[in-house]
Simulated assay, not measured.
Amino acid sequence: MSLGADGPPGAVPPEPLRVSSSTRGSCLVVEAEGELTILTSDLLRDHVLADMRLLDGPPRVVMDVGEVGFCDSSGLNALIVLWKNAHRAGGEFVLAGPERRFRTILERSGLDRHLLAYPTQDEALDALHETGGG
């Protein structure tokens, strides 16, 4: 699917969001790259929710956002939905590698009190292994 293909002639289409996931130990690691906007947030949310359903036990998810160049309110909403789903199932959802601009968005929205962020993927995984016993 090509996002932004129907824009005005000469307009630069928005950067698509690429999402990939893998498991490390008992944790789901999701890597997002591109822009997390109203055009791409459903893709991210649906991808991660589907992968969370495949996990054994409570979902423990690390979302690496180090390559996300922009996040709007729809993107933040997708992250909230994922965080809530993980917590309802007795799991955890944390962020890894947010750049300064992304951290500022989290802080200004107050979401930094709920969406814990770690500087690296490895630090996020270590934190989940400490809290999840795996």
Rank of each mutant, 00 (worst) to 15 (best):
G91N: 00
T23C: 14
Q121F: 00
M63R: 07
F102E: 01
R101C: 11
H114F: 13
R108K: 14
V12A: 14
H114N: 14
S22P: 04
G7P: 08
G90W: 05
A50K: 13
E31D: 14
L28R: 06
T120Y: 03
V12C: 12
D42Y: 11
L128T: 12
F102G: 10
G25A: 01
A96P: 12
K84Y: 00
L49Q: 02
R53T: 15
P58A: 11
P58G: 02
L128F: 09
S22Y: 08
Q121A: 13
G34K: 10
S74H: 02
A78Y: 02
P59Q: 02
D112G: 10
N85R: 12
G110Y: 03
G75L: 00
C71Q: 04
A89G: 09
D56H: 13
D64S: 10
G132P: 08
P59L: 01
L79W: 00
L82F: 02
P119W: 01
R18Y: 10
E15W: 01
G7N: 13
P98Y: 02
E99N: 14
L39A: 15
E99V: 15
G133A: 09
L28P: 06
V48R: 13
H114Q: 13
H129N: 15
A5L: 13
I80K: 02
D64L: 07
L49W: 07
L55W: 01
E15R: 12
V12W: 09
H114D: 14
A117V: 02
G66Y: 10
R88D: 11
D122W: 04
D112M: 06
F70W: 05
V81Q: 06
N85I: 09
K84H: 11
A32V: 03
G91T: 05
E33K: 15
T40A: 03
R18M: 08
C27Q: 08
G134H: 10
R113H: 06
V68N: 04
P8T: 13
M1G: 15
L17P: 04
L95E: 05
